[in-house]
């Protein structure tokens, strides 16, 4: 059974590229373009991994992360934060809120795949 991954990002082109990348590697891909939609899709579709952009309209990545970790039903969902702000404070804030990994934009597709596989235990 292929792993299910949700891409939550408001940048359409980034979504397109990651979606193409992950599909090619055989993952099942879901897409959300803002924080609320992402939260809703996680609850509805139960993906194994969420690639979570920090700067999103309606609800930012930190809030989404916090909401996900507050829901005991979703304890198995891995969270990989993606952000364009690479400051240390942001990294520690994300990890402090319960994210499992953190990647700074722009990232290498290989590294992203490696991180995804690591988080999914593959």
């Amino acid at each position: 059974m292929s792993k299910r991954i949700l891409i939550a990002d408001d940048e359409q082109n980034i979504v397109i590229s990651i979606e193409f990348l992950l599909r090619r590697e055989g993952f099942e891909v879901l897409v959300a373009s803002d924080g609320e939609e992402a939260l809703a899709k996680v609850r509805a579709e139960r993906p194994d991994l969420v690639l979570l952009d920090v700067m999103m309209p309606r609800m930012n990545g930190f809030d989404v992360c916090q909401a996900l970790r507050a829901d005991p039903d979703l304890g198995g969902t891995r969270i990989l934060m993606l952000t364009a702000k690479g400051r240390d404070t942001e990294v520690s804030k994300g990890l402090g809120l319960g994210a499992d990994g953190y990647m700074t934009k722009p990232f290498s597709t290989k590294e992203l795949l490696a991180e995804v596989r690591k988080l999914l235990g593959m």
Binding site: E11, N13, I14, I16, S17, I18, F20, L21, M55, A84, K85, G86, T104, K105, P106, F107, S108, T109, K110
Partner: peptide
């Protein structure tokens, strides 16, 4: 602070697409 964020966003897409094409 804003510019770094705004620059990284298009760069992310460009890098991702470029690597996809390359690989």
């Amino acid at each position: 602070s804003s510019v770094t964020h705004e620059l990284r966003t298009p760069l992310t897409s460009i890098r991702a697409f470029s690597e996809l094409l390359r690989d």
